[in-house]
Each structure stands twice: as C-alpha cells, then as structure tokens.
C-alpha cells in the first residue's frame, strides 16, 4: 500500500509529467489559454491515457514478450493508440454525446501527444505490475490536469497584462513553467514519513 502511495505522490508531483519529464508540452503551451479547454484537455488525456496504458501494458506482457518481439513495441504502441483514439471518438459520439461534446475536440490532438505513448513506454521501462501501472498512469494524468489547469488560470491573467511584446505567448508561458517547476521541486519531503 505504501509503495502505491509513494508511486502516486511521485507521479503527481515529483515526476510531474510536464514539469520534470517534459512530456505533453505541446498541449501545455497550446491548449492552456482558457480554463475550460485546459480542463477538457486534462480529462481527455486522463481518459485516453488510462485506456491506452492498460491495453499497451497487456499487449506488451502477453503478446510481445511471449513471441519475443519486444523490439516492435514502438510501432505497435503508436498504432494501437492511434486506432484507440479513433475508436474512442466514434464510440463516444454514439454512446455519450454530452461527454463527446466535452472531450471530443481534444481527442484528435491526443494521438500526436507524446504524453500518451510516453507513459505507455515508461510503464514498461519502470517494470510496474498491473496495479502499480494503473495507479502511476492515473496520477500522471492527474498531475497533467493539475498543472495545465493552474497554468491556464495564470495564462488568463497574463492575456490581459501588457507583457513585453517579445515575451508574449510561448516565452512567458515557459518562464511561468520554470517557476512552477521550482515550486514543485520543493514538495519533496511532504510524503517522506510514509516510507
């Protein structure tokens, strides 16, 4: 149990996917201009990430390893994720139009989001078992949501500010990200007493 808590906390804060692993920077810069879109993107990422990580994990351990063709993992994972996003999109459209309305427009962006395949690959290289994998993926996704949401709040404020012209857009966003990264590194000891 305590190892799961440790995995969850470090996935959420210490190994935060955006601020320390540099995955999913494109949506971080691109979609975080408004609070609502940040929320939508965050939930869509959690949703797709959980499904794709579970499927790729099962595929890897029960097919690729069995047949000794682990070197095909990149190509298999990317195809699976692309097909999966497609399927989720059609399924959502039919099954739950309201959910589709909320997440739908972010789904196509997700295929080329390196966070999804990145986490799928990290789950393999970290040698997690299935439960650990689910917890890790869940909290990586929550960390993504958390950071992109607080980031969007700041972006909304920055939009009205007379930021120097050269710094408008991505540069100031990156500087804010740097400050966030520094703040996040200071959370280290908060969970130490558990282990």
């Amino acid at each position: 149990m305590s190892d799961l808590i440790a995995i969850a906390f470090s996935a959420f804060i210490l190994q935060n996917i955006i601020l320390t692993q540099f995955l999913g920077i494109c949506p971080f810069i691109g979609v975080s201009t408004k609070r609502s879109s940040a929320l939508g993107m965050g939930f869509a990422v959690i949703f797709v990430m959980l499904i794709s990580s579970s499927i790729t994990w099962l595929l890897y351990h029960y097919v690729l390893v069995e047949f000794d063709i682990t070197y095909l993992r990149t190509i298999v994972f990317i195809l699976v994720i692309a097909a999966l996003v497609q399927m989720v999109e059609t399924f959502l459209k039919k099954a739950s139009p309201s959910l589709y309305k909320a997440l739908g427009i972010y789904l196509p962006l997700i295929t080329t989001n390196c966070a999804i395949i990145g986490v799928a690959l990290l789950n393999i290289s970290n040698e997690y078992n299935f439960v650990q994998m689910v917890v890790y993926t869940m909290f990586i996704g929550l960390g993504f949501l958390f950071v992109i949401y607080i980031f969007s709040m700041m972006r909304e404020k920055l939009d009205h500010a007379p930021v120097p012209k050269a710094f408008k857009g991505a540069p100031i966003a990156l500087i804010v990200a740097a400050i966030l990264a520094i703040i996040f590194t200071r959370f280290g000891g908060l969970i130490e007493w558990i282990s």
């Binding site: 700041m154 920055l158 500010a161 007379p162 804010v176 400050i179």
Partner: peptide
C-alpha cells in the same frame, strides 16, 4: 514583475520570487 506586464499584473510576489529562486 516586468515580464509579467509590470506592476498590477504580476502573478508572483516579485521579492518573494527573487528570494525563492536565489535560495534554490
């Protein structure tokens, strides 16, 4: 302060930010 648009627009307390980053 200034990169965020000057006084009235800064998100972080400037002095505090300087203190935290220098401490880091």
């Amino acid at each position: 302060k200034m990169l965020f648009g000057g006084f009235g627009h800064n998100i972080f307390n400037p002095a505090l930010l300087g203190y935290v980053i220098v401490g880091f």
